[in-house]
Amino acid sequence: MSLLPWKKSFPKKFSTNTRNKTLPPVVCLFGPTAVGKTDLLEELFGDSAEIISADSMQVYRLLDIGSAKPDPPSLKRIPHHLIDILDYTEQFNTGDFVRLAEECIRGIHNRGKLPVLSGGTAFYFKNLLFGLPPIPPIPAGLRETLNDELSEKGPQALHMQLALVDPETAERLNPADRSRIVRALEVFRGTGQALSTYKTASKPRNDLPCLLLGLERPRAELYERINERVEIMFQQGLYEEVKNLITRGACEDDPGMKGIGYSEFFPFLREGCLTLGDVKARIQKDSRRYAKRQMTFFSSLPGVQWFHPDQTEDVRKVIEVFTTAGS
């Protein structure tokens, strides 16, 4: 069922102002993994909206089961954006997401639809809502130089360099996280300042009218759903999906292979002393830990209205008030 017969344009109160570049209004629907975002989206929206995926793994082609992408019928019923846009070897950072999401928001609005941002990657939401840190442009060619150093010296050596110039960033990065180490050194060499000195704004930006809707479940209920989801992923062929990716040349250092649901397979394949049951248990455990971190982060965002996913009509009413405000 469609949320409402969508109007040709937003109310004047929310109209895009090309002079100050205010973005059209957006509904943000977020919550931890397996909370029930996809099902609720299908209940709320038909042809009245288009979805912008805020999921750091669903951007990658061929990573379907482990990233819990919506199935093809769901993608056909409601247009989705920022899904299957990159190869798993390519880096996709928060800045990329914010720029593409803003383009999608404008495009969806111009088609007379409601932009709905949905997913579980908390940093994507925060940087869209608060704005990107003001990092100056980086000189061309610097990343290529750093990648050459990476190939020659290895990630550990570059991580040690980073620790000398930006200990705060080095502390939070895994010494094997090649792409983020390169990015941090790129910022330092290109701007003369540590990446950690560029902070996200403390207040939400004033050029993006948005409705923040958070989904939550009791912890025991959520953890049960996470465990069940992982079971279903294995039934759907997650192991075969990962094997096929590795046959194609995927390796542990690829950005797409670092996500939960994929990274846990590499010790299994490398060490040979784990069973698929062990891998499944690790994915379940990592997913539960991730869900806890997600809830902590999302709870820190200001102005969120929280709902259980079963409160469909309550959520629908809040969205109707938001989209008709000022009319």
Rank of each mutant, 00 (worst) to 15 (best):
F307T: 08
S196Y: 01
E221H: 02
F45K: 01
D87I: 10
G31P: 07
Q58I: 08
Q156H: 10
D87F: 11
K12A: 15
W6R: 14
K126M: 12
K7N: 08
S179D: 14
T312R: 08
D278Q: 00
W306V: 11
P5A: 15
F125C: 01
F45L: 01
A140K: 06
G112R: 03
L132W: 10
I51C: 02
K13T: 15
S202Y: 06
I232K: 06
L129E: 15
P5V: 13
G107S: 14
E313W: 05
S300T: 13
V165D: 02
Q156W: 07
L211Y: 13
K21Q: 15
L23G: 05
F265Y: 09
L274W: 11
D310G: 10
G119W: 12
S48K: 00
N244E: 13
L162A: 06
A101Y: 00
E240Q: 13
F307C: 02
F14C: 10
S263Y: 04
E224N: 13
I51V: 15
T16M: 13
F265A: 10
F268A: 07
L146Q: 07
V98Q: 02
S300C: 06
A184D: 03
E252Y: 04
P5T: 06
S67T: 14
V318H: 01
P134T: 04
E240D: 14
E50S: 12
L114I: 14
V27I: 15
L208W: 09
T33H: 01
A54I: 13
P115A: 06
F45H: 02
P24D: 03
N110V: 07
T33V: 11
E42D: 09
T38A: 11
Y223Q: 14
F97D: 02
F97A: 09
L212H: 12
I65K: 00
G326E: 10
G249F: 09
L86F: 02
F266V: 08
R205K: 15
L63Q: 08
E228T: 12
D207A: 04
F92W: 12
K153A: 04
Q58V: 11
K69R: 08
F10D: 09
R178I: 02
V165C: 05
I108P: 00
N147W: 07
A163Q: 08
F125S: 00
M57I: 00
I65A: 00
N227I: 12
P175E: 07
S118R: 03
V26W: 04
Y262S: 03
A157R: 01
V26R: 01
R180I: 09
F97R: 04
R143D: 13
A122K: 05
F234T: 04
K280H: 06
W306K: 03
K203C: 04
E221N: 05
